[in-house]
Design a protein around this nucleic acid. Structure first.
Length: 722
DNA sequence: GTAGGGTTAG
């Protein structure tokens, strides 16, 4: 009685007090433990039973097998399996079914299949368990083969559960065609009115990325919707990048009084907020979690999603604090935490966190390695990266293509092209990302010719079709090869590969033509783009005019851009300002700067300010640039670039040197000596400024301070070493 | 006594 009321402690107390026990006592207690999730306890009772006078009967054995499956305990499960064989229970179908299910739950599909093949008697449950087992792991071929055998050789009719399994197989394998067939069959047989089956079809379409179909099934085919139906559609939106739709659906669910949202709902909507970098949204979800009494620590998936969300929204403190709340972080939790640190410019936390992870006995997976290589690459830490490379070899992670790709990227970022090449050449199973990483690496490091050579190899090998990412890298490579015809060449590639109608590719091509000085070709391609144009296209075209000295064309482009409904962004103004600077259009430049701040409310960035300095510098009117920035338009903002940003001062100082403007240069030098005394770069700049103005004494003085500084440092080191 | 729809990282 107590067991059925979920008051398992009381049940156990009563059990302890019963002096004379029989099968029913043991079985009902095991059943009680099992159905309340106390599998460990169920197994303990089973052990006690073995020691007692009552040998377990079929019911107790099947309870015990189930408990082993839930616990993931292969060893215990196999022991009971032996016991089943010894006692001649192999002809009991439910026992055999429990064994199949247990092996599948502990992740041993092969052993489950062995039992399935060996057993003389099977029923629909045996077939369904095996089909669902394959389906969960995405082995749709095996799942369907079994289904066909079942119909053909056993003449068994499929049940609803069979179709749940088959729909799941299609979803896991992203097999949309087969999924549609199943859907059609369910409609014809009138089974779609079953909420579970209908929901499994929504889920199948969601997993196949066909969210429109998922939505229409949800709306039209489901006469009755459960919370799971809603959650399945929400997952479909969220996982396929339909963030806005996911949020809207969630809000609809939130106001619907008949729905009591659960951890699945929340875990599904969180990535939608996270991927649109909506910190407010994530915070509101956090408060919903608290209000609904859903513990972040209680559901590891939800907790992990929250850590990830805060990380992606740049609130690393909140991410850390959620992470610290989680008692038993999973490997995924550790992974998202490491990733959060890398994203938020704290890559140095990667390795220490990894060591902590190992300490807490959570085994890292291939994604952990990918994250750690990212952090080493970000830090340029070749030493840590190489050590991690060794670790991967010893643990067998080097068999994962993604890990190898991350390693190649790490070596490239650490400036070690040789190692990345060796690794690349040694990889037996490359994928398109491998090629793209290596290609992109050559481009980033300025080895355009090598990139083109590799691109040729890729096509000769003919194993992996170049994709958009390949194309963008190749366009960039061609932008900087000599002869000026790189743009045409790469345009040819894009046409051949059928990638020319992609906006990103077309934008890069416009840029490539422009940088090769072919402004006419750039403009003509830009005009052809028509509906393909996005905001970035306009930015690229404006910049293209700028570098080719066509400053006057930018104003009309800017007007057209606004007419076409694209609002200029920060990058647009960088392009505009740099174009004005190249064409010596100071008045227009000032006008755009003013427009940017007052009309569009965009805070000037370092790039904008360097354009301004460059623009005035070219005319020898640096004092005005200084005034503009100083009096500028950033009053009231938190960040005053002139007092906070050394880079602006350094750029100003450097411009003063070129223009031999002593007073302002000195001012910039003094500012730098105050704000960045440890960085010696400014000494050189300042002494060069004095030297170019023939103020040799001052130049020498600055140099002396610089040399002395170095000397002190050296002395400090020798002292420390003694 | 056995099977049975949904969740996180790249």
């Amino acid at each position: 009685m107590y067991s059925k009321l979920s008051r398992i402690q009381d049940a156990f107390r009563v059990f302890e007090e019963i002096p004379i026990r029989d099968y029913t006592t043991y079985n009902s207690l095991m059943c009680g433990f099992g159905s309340n999730g106390f599998y460990e306890e169920a197994v303990v009772i089973f052990d006690q039973m073995l020691e007692s006078d009552f040998f377990p009967n079929v019911a107790s054995i099947s309870y015990a097998i189930r408990a082993c499956g839930e616990l993931g305990s292969l060893d215990r499960g196999s022991l009971i399996h032996d016991c089943v064989i010894k006692n001649g229970l192999y002809s009991d179908v439910p026992i055999v079914n429990s064994l199949i299910s247990m092996y599948i739950k502990v992740g041993r599909l092969d052993l489950g299949r062995q039992v399935f093949d060996d057993t003389p008697k099977k029923d629909i449950i045996s077939w369904n368990s095996m089909i669902t087992g394959y389906a969960r792991s995405g082995y749709w071929v095996e799942a369907f083969e079994l289904y066909i055998s079942m119909r053909k050789f056993e003449n068994l009719d499929p049940s609803r559960v069979t179709f749940l399994g088959l729909a799941l197989a299609c979803g896991q394998a992203h097999n949309l065609d087969l999924g549609k067939t199943i859907h059609g069959y369910l409609i014809r047989s009138g089974l779609m009115s079953d909420v579970r089956l209908g929901t499994s079809i929504v889920d199948m379409y969601s997993k196949c990325g066909a969210v429109k179909f998922a939505r229409s099934v949800f709306e039209e085919d489901l006469p009755e919707k459960s919370l799971i139906s809603w959650n399945s559609l929400l997952a479909g939106y969220s996982q396929n990048g339909y963030n806005h739709e996911a949020v809207l659906l969630f809000q609809q669910m939130f106001v619907d009084a008949n729905l009591k949202l659960d951890a699945f709902t929340i875990a599904n909507v969180v990535p939608a907020y996270a991927n649109s970098a909506d910190l407010q949204g994530v915070r509101s979800i956090h408060s919903i979690i608290v209000k609904n009494g859903l513990e972040l620590d209680g559901d590891i998936v939800l907790g992990t999603a929250m850590v990830d969300a805060y990380g992606k929204c740049s609130d690393i403190e909140a991410a850390t604090s959620v992470f610290n709340c989680i008692q038993n972080p999973s490997a995924v939790t550790w992974n998202v935490m490491i990733s959060g640190y890398v994203l938020n410019r704290h890559a140095e936390q990667g390795i220490p966190l990894f060591l902590e992870m190992l300490n807490s006995n959570v085994f890292p997976d291939s994604i952990t390695m990918v994250m750690l290589f990212q952090s080493c690459g970000e830090l340029g830490s070749l030493k840590q990266g190489s050590m991690l490379h060794g670790y991967c070899l010893s643990k067998g992670f080097d068999s994962h293509a993604t890990v190898n790709n991350a390693m190649i990227d790490m070596y490239i970022r650490c400036g070690c092209m040789k190692s990345s090449q060796v690794l690349f050449n040694s990889m037996p199973h490359k994928n398109v990302v491998t090629w793209n990483t290596m290609l992109g690496g050559y481009v980033k490091r300025g080895h355009s010719a090598m990139a083109l050579k590799l691109f040729l190899c890729m096509q000769l090998e003919n194993m992996h079709k170049p994709d958009l990412v390949t194309m963008i890298s190749i366009i960039q490579a061609c932008t900087y090869i000599s002869g000026g015809r790189g743009g045409e060449m790469v345009h040819g590639f894009a046409l051949k590969l059928g990638l020319d109608s992609d906006t990103l590719v077309a934008n890069s091509l416009v840029d490539a033509y422009a940088k090769n000085g072919l402004i006419i070709e750039a403009r003509s391609l830009f005009d052809q783009m028509d509906r393909l144009r996005d905001q970035s296209s306009w930015n690229v075209m404006i910049a293209a005019c700028g570098v080719n000295g066509k400053g006057e064309e930018t104003s009309s482009l800017f007007l057209q851009m606004e007419e076409d409904g694209f609002e200029p962004n920060s990058i647009t103004f960088v392009s505009l300002l740099s174009s004005c600077s190249h064409s010596g259009m100071i008045n227009e430049g000032c006008h755009y700067f003013d427009l940017m701040v007052s009309k569009y409310g965009i805070q000037p960035s370092l790039e904008h300010l360097t354009c301004i300095i460059d623009m005035f510098g070219r005319a020898g009117r640096l004092q005005e640039a200084y005034q503009l920035i100083k009096n500028g338009h950033h009053e009231g903002s938190n960040c005053n670039l002139l007092s906070d940003c050394d880079a602006v001062w350094r750029f100003l100082l450097s411009a003063c040197k070129t223009n031999i403007i002593m007073e302002l240069g000195k001012l910039a030098g003094e500012q730098l000596s105050r704000s960045a005394p440890d960085k010696c770069g400014y000494h050189t700049l300042l002494s060069n400024l004095y030297a170019s103005g023939s103020k040799w004494d001052e130049a020498a003085k600055v140099r002396k301070i610089f040399e002395d500084g170095k000397l002190t440092k050296k002395r400090g080191w020798s002292l420390a070493m003694m």
